[in-house]
Design a protein around this nucleic acid. Structure first.
Length: 366
DNA sequence: AATACGGGGCC
DNA sequence: GGCCCAGTATT
């Protein structure tokens, strides 16, 4: 173990901290849908949805998802497209695909029982060190660390840990700290209490120290370092990508949509035909026209600029020009592209930016 | 060790 | 406009 941390922990009032935290959590915890019971499957789904996603955002998705797929068997037997549709708008869609894949494994290999050992649960797709610890502690009462961004921020302040919380390997330092502090009587309340504290009191900016149940144990508070901790390195700016999107209507009034590849960004989601601008030699309209001709063998009349839209992802920015046009092409349905009405679009999983496009088109009544 | 992977809400 | 969010998989 990190020797600074080891020394800190030797003199740290562990029992006071643990008792204050657990009692505060048991008294003040929010009433959240995944806290209804300790069904490991329900806990699992909530933990996957909560990855990099705020509680308030998750709640409506979680309620709908549990209604659609109440048990391991229901999710295992569902069509992937239905699962993606339920995830639509939540982001990080590989979470949904990995969750279903892992649930199918639990259904088949473990007879529907979510594994209760670190070794087995960590083998499941989409279950990393945080999620493994969260399920084991919350659903099974096993004293394993569940270190997320909240826990690193809280412990950084409580123990004045100066390791950069943006560096992945440093998570292990915080896991060691949790192992030294965790309640063995109620590991669930301890881990959830750490996260709840981070969400409600020990927030990134303007933490509510005067309301904090462990202020007496907080070394950052004692030393006036609350605003200096945690230390977190900055991430680099997202890359800009210029795209042209075609909203192409055929004689039957249906629109051409395509399915994205099964790996990478927005995998398996549906979208309007999209071409990336790679050189300045071609205009945007020509780039799109050649793409449609090459990919779908269609000629489009009056391919005209309609509007622009920008969409920001974590690691890139799409700057999109949307063009509209008509074709004499007849409808036929293939696997990776379809001709559909705007109403039919709403039954398929679309990334938010393409939802915005079909909403805009619908509004302008094309 | 770095990068890919969504989307929204807050300051 | 940047930061952050109950992170994980891949390279």
């Amino acid at each position: 173990m990190n020797s600074d941390l080891q020394h800190t922990l030797e003199v740290f009032p562990k029992n006071d901290f643990k008792n204050n935290l657990v009692n505060w959590f048991l008294a003040e915890q929010r009433n959240l849908p995944w806290r209804l019971n300790k069904d490991p499957y329900r806990v699992w789904v909530s933990e996957i949805m909560l990855q990099q996603t705020r509680v308030e955002t998750v709640i409506p998705f979680y309620n709908k998802f549990m209604q659609l797929f109440p048990t391991v068997a229901d999710l295992a037997n569902a069509k992937e497209e239905k699962v993606l549709k339920a995830w639509e708008g939540l982001g990080y869609y590989s979470r949904a695909r990995n969750l279903q894949s892992a649930v199918r494994e639990v259904h088949e290999v473990y007879n529907g029982q979510v594994p209760n050992t670190p070794e087995n649960i960590s083998k499941l797709k989409g279950v990393g060190p945080y999620t493994a610890g969260a399920i084991l502690s919350i659903a099974y009462g096993i004293p394993e660390p569940a270190v997320d961004g909240n826990v690193m921020r809280v412990l950084s302040r409580i123990l004045t840990i100066r390791e950069d919380i943006g560096v992945p390997k440093n998570r292990k330092i915080f896991e060691q700290a949790v192992r030294a502090l965790i309640s063995h009587e109620d590991p669930s309340a301890f881990n959830q209490g750490m996260m709840e504290l981070g969400a409600l009191i020990c927030t990134p900016t303007n933490p509510a120290c005067l309301l904090c149940p462990v202020r007496e144990q907080c070394m950052a508070f004692e030393n006036g370092l609350v605003n200096e901790l945690p230390i977190k390195s900055k991430k680099k700016a997202p890359k800009q990508v210029e795209l042209v999107v075609g909203v192409i209507k055929n004689k039957e009034g249906k629109f051409l949509i395509q399915q994205r590849p099964q790996t990478g960004l927005l995998a398996n989601m549906w979208e309007f035909p999209t071409a990336e601008l790679k050189s300045n030699l071609l205009s945007k309209g020509d780039t799109l026209g050649f793409f449609l001709n090459e990919e779908y063998k269609i000629e489009v009349e009056e391919l005209a600029y309609h509007f622009s839209i920008e969409h920001v992802f974590t690691h890139l920015v799409w700057k999109i020009d949307v063009y509209v046009g008509n074709t004499i092409k007849e409808s036929n349905s293939l696997t990776t592209h379809k001709w559909v009405s705007l109403e039919e679009c709403k039954d398929l999983p679309f990334p938010v930016v393409h939802q915005k496009i079909y909403q805009q088109i619908e509004k302008s009544q094309l």
